[in-house]
Computed example of a mutant assay.
Amino acid sequence: MIEKLAEQLVNLTVKQVGELATLLKKEYGIEPYSSVKSEDFSNKKEKILEKKEKSIFNIILKSSGNSKLSVVKLVKEITGKGLKESKNLVDNIPSVLKESINKKEAEDLKNKFEEIGAEIELK
């Protein structure tokens, strides 16, 4: 008997599966496991992503603003590169100035750049 039932279930059309799911839900309060599971997983994944805060950042120069010379000097200071290399970074925007730094340092550097009119993105 179980084998026949299994064979009948396997041979159902998509429409018949939908009708079966509706009937099971309406008459018996049974929802298909896969749809409940995927909804639960989606909700949990969203909550985990909201809770997980990024802690490592790259500093990207998006604009030097009006004070290009000040930005070049600051780039030179934080990167340890020479004047010519620092100027090239500022001239070729967007430029990654520092990679893999912690949140506090990234925010401090971003504030320094913004004080002199530069636009910084943290990624």
Rank of each mutant, 00 (worst) to 15 (best):
D108H: 04
K112L: 10
V36F: 00
D40T: 03
E53M: 06
F57N: 01
K44G: 02
E39G: 01
N88Q: 11
K45G: 00
L9Y: 01
S70Y: 09
M1R: 08
D40P: 00
K123I: 03
L61I: 05
L49I: 13
I78H: 05
E85W: 03
Q16W: 02
I78R: 07
K47P: 00
I120T: 02
T13L: 05
T79N: 05
L74E: 14
K44Y: 13
S42I: 06
G80K: 06
K104N: 09
E46G: 01
V71F: 04
L20A: 15
S55Y: 05
K47I: 03
S35W: 00
A106I: 06
K37A: 07
S86Q: 04
E31N: 15
P32H: 00
K103Q: 06
G80I: 02
A6P: 01
K81F: 09
G29I: 01
N102F: 07
E121L: 13
L20N: 02
S38H: 06
F57P: 00
G117F: 10
A6D: 10
K104A: 08
N111V: 04
L69H: 01
F113E: 07
N11H: 09
V75F: 04
N43M: 12
T13K: 11
Y33V: 08
K123T: 10
K123Q: 10
E27D: 15
E99T: 14
G117K: 05
K26Y: 02
E105N: 04
A106R: 08
I59P: 00
E53N: 11
I60F: 10
E85M: 03
S64F: 14
K45M: 12
A6K: 15
G29W: 03
K84M: 09
K87M: 12
L49W: 03
I120L: 12
V36A: 10
S35Y: 02
L122E: 05
T22N: 12
K4H: 10
P94M: 12
L49R: 12
E19A: 15
E115N: 13
G117D: 03
I56Y: 03
L23F: 11
E3W: 05
S86W: 02
K37D: 00
I56Q: 10
K26I: 00
I93V: 15
E114V: 02
F113Y: 08
Y28F: 15
N11W: 00
A118E: 09
S63I: 00
K98M: 13
K4I: 10
S67D: 13
E85Y: 05
T79C: 05
T13G: 08
K52E: 11
S34Q: 06
L12I: 07
K62I: 14
E19P: 06
I93C: 06
E85R: 08
L89R: 04
E85L: 07
L49T: 09
I30T: 04
F41T: 07
L109V: 04
L89C: 03
L109I: 14
E99C: 02
L109E: 08
S63T: 00
N88S: 11
E107D: 11
K44R: 15
N66G: 01
E46R: 14
I78Y: 07
L5E: 09
G18M: 14
K76M: 13
A118R: 09
I101A: 08
N43I: 04
G65P: 10
P32Q: 05
L74M: 10
E77Q: 12
K51I: 03
N88K: 12
